[in-house]
Amino acid sequence: MTDASLLDIEGLTVSFPSDSGRVSVVRDFALRMGREKIGIVGESGSGKSITARAILGLVPHPGQTTARRMQLGNRNLLALDSAGWRGIRGKYAGMIMQDPKFSLNPVMRIGDQITETLRLHEKLDRAEQRRRAIAILQAVGIDDPERVYAAYPHELSGGMGQRAMIAAMLISSPELIIADEPTSALDVLVREQVLKLLDDLVTTRGIGLILISHDLPMVARFCDRILVMYRGRIVETLDAHHLDRANHPYTKGLMACLPQPAYRGQMLPSLSRDPAWEQA
């Protein structure tokens, strides 16, 4: 299933104006992916979240996105105006955000928030919308979809909220899903379930997934390939099954920082940085 042409990005750069000229927060990002699972890891401020937003054309106002090539399927994203972007977002590409407590609208019923994606892109009657929403709620592992459909966000737990959010993104069968730290706001126990669910859904439906996280081992378990970002650049691309083949000192440093039984009783090593990495 790896037709290498689902998402094709080359030379993606995002910059913001500052007092001392434009500052690039993402530099020369490139990614060619098929319907596979790509992980992007990096520390806070490495540019991974803004990359995700740039792929959906959602870089906030003074920011500027440029690229040599940016294609989703056979659609050229660089040529889109705002109406064109609205036709892409939600329908062909979706994003799952960090915390359902903030990303779900507190005064809107869950059902309406899920069917909104459908309503914006397809003409369907209410009954059909509802039927599909209930079906997708069941698919994301919610036992009482009827109740959740009529519920408001504050009536759901974090895990349920995140499932509802996944449902809202999957309902219009997109080709690409970006998950930006989808589990870091959840309890440890729920975290694993939600990730597993996301993994299953994406695999069975043949959706391309970009999983963004700072948690390297977690990403390695779920993804095929991993991009390591540092200060706005991709410093290394890894095969998820061969983390040990990491070459870049930053990646090695990240892995060395993880607690392991072998380090028991010792201080964990911390990352020492080298300015040369930025030129890598």
Binding site: K91, V107, M108
Partner: peptide, 26 residues
Amino acid sequence: NKEYVTMARIKGASETRILWRHAFPN
């Protein structure tokens, strides 16, 4: 400035819709 507004954009909602259907009721 809240996240659910970004969420609505991700779903493909127009700015008018975001203004009146999402932010205003809140």
